[in-house]
Design a protein around this nucleic acid. Structure first.
Length: 287
DNA sequence: CCGTTAACCTGAGAGC
DNA sequence: TGCTCTCAGGTTAACG
C-alpha cells in the first residue's frame, strides 16, 4: 500500500531507530514472500551492522557491513514494527498498521537487535527482502528502473524522451515504475489533478508545458505528503504509531461524486477504471 | 520494442 | 450468521 511518501516516512523512522545497530539474529517464520527467502538469508544478515538506510522510489535499502545490501519492498500490505523486549507483543511504535499493537498473524521476519527487534508483517505477501553482495549489483538493480521523481535528474529532458511516441495513457505512465519510480495509485490521480491533465491522455500528446507541470507537481505533492507524514487511508501509521495527515489534503482520490475542489467549477469528481486501478479526476478541469 | 491483462495473496466491507 | 462479491498505497510474467 505504501507509495514513495509513506516509504520515506518509514525510512526516516528506521534511520532514527536502527542506524549503526548490530544485528544479533534473524528469524524467518515464513520464507514465502514475493521473492522466496533463501536458506542463506539469515546467515548473511547475522552479525552485520546497519551502516546506512536509504530509499529509492518505493524501496528501502540497508547498507550493511562487509559490502552487503538488503533491499526491502513493502508491497501492498507490508509493515514494520518495533518491538521492545519488555512489552513483547504490545505497543509497537515503528508501526505501519491500524493498530499500535503487533498484529497476531503474518509476522514473517524478525530482526533481533538485542533489547528490541524489528518485525516484518505482510498479510498479502507482495513485499520482499532481497540481498545483493556488492555496490555494483545494487546500482545495477536500480539502473533498470525509472527515475525517482525527487531525484535531480528527473527533469524535462528525461521525461520528454520517455513520453514521445508513447501511446500509453499518462495515468499508466505515471504508474509505470520503469519510466517513473515511486508514484502509486493515489498520488498519480492527485498529481494529474494539479497538472490539469486528463488521465486518459496519451503520452505522446502531452505538451511541453504539461511535462513541466508533471515535474513540478510530482515533486511538490510527494514532498508535501512526506511533510504530512504520509497518507493514512486504511492502515498506514508513522514512526510513533501516529496517522499520516496527507489524506486530508486529497483533492480527488476517493472523492467520487464530490464537488471539484477548484473554485468556479461545479462539476463532480468522476471515478474511472484504468487498467483495473481506480482513477479520480475532474472532466472539466483536466483535459 | 510496446501495451494490456492476468496472476500473485489476504482481509475488510457491502449486499443479500 | 454466513455466503458471495468487490476492492485495496504493487509488481511482473506472458501474450499478441
Amino acid at each position: 500500500m505504501p507509495e514513495l511518501p509513506e516509504v520515506e516516512v518509514v525510512k526516516q523512522s528506521l534511520e532514527r531507530t536502527i542506524k549503526n545497530k548490530y544485528i544479533i539474529d534473524i528469524l524467518v517464520r515464513n520464507p514465502n514472500l514475493r521473492l522466496k527467502i533463501t536458506s542463506k538469508f539469515a546467515k548473511i544478515l547475522k552479525k552485520k551492522i546497519i551502516l546506512n538506510i536509504k530509499r529509492i522510489a518505493k524501496y528501502i535499502i540497508f547498507e550493511l557491513s562487509y559490502d552487503q545490501y538488503l533491499i526491502i519492498h513493502l508491497g501492498m500490505s507490508g509493515t514494520l514494527h518495533l518491538v521492545t523486549s519488555k512489552k513483547s507483543n504490545l505497543n509497537t511504535n515503528l508501526s505501519f498498521y491500524s493498530s499500535t499493537n503487533l498484529p497476531k498473524k503474518h509476522n514473517h521476519i524478525e530482526i533481533n537487535f538485542g533489547n528490541f527487534k524489528i518485525v516484518y508483517n505482510d498479510p498479502r505477501r507482495f513485499g520482499f527482502f532481497k540481498i545483493v553482495n556488492s555496490k555494483k549489483k545494487l546500482n545495477n538493480y536500480f539502473s533498470k528502473k525509472g527515475l525517482d521523481p525527487l531525484q535531480k535528474q528527473f527533469n524535462f529532458k528525461y521525461l520528454f524522451e520517455k513520453f514521445k511516441n508513447r501511446k500509453k495513457n499518462i495515468k499508466n505512465i505515471l504508474l509505470d515504475q520503469n519510466i517513473i519510480s515511486g508514484i502509486g495509485n493515489i498520488y498519480a490521480s492527485e498529481i494529474l489533478f494539479f497538472c490539469k491533465i486528463n488521465p486518459n491522455k496519451e503520452g505522446r500528446l502531452i505538451k511541453t508545458i504539461e511535462i513541466k507541470k508533471i515535474i513540478k507537481y510530482s515533486k511538490l505533492v510527494l514532498n508535501k505528503a512526506i511533510k504530512k507524514g504520509g497518507s493514512s487511508i486504511l492502515n498506514f501509521r508513522s514512526t510513533q504509531g501516529n496517522m499520516g495527515n496527507y489524506q486530508d489534503e486529497f483533492k480527488v482520490y476517493g472523492k467520487e461524486n464530490k464537488k471539484c475542489p477548484n473554485k468556479n467549477c461545479k462539476f463532480k469528481i468522476l471515478k474511472l477504471n484504468i487498467s483495473n486501478r481506480s482513477t479520480f479526476y475532474c472532466q472539466n478541469c483536466q483535459n
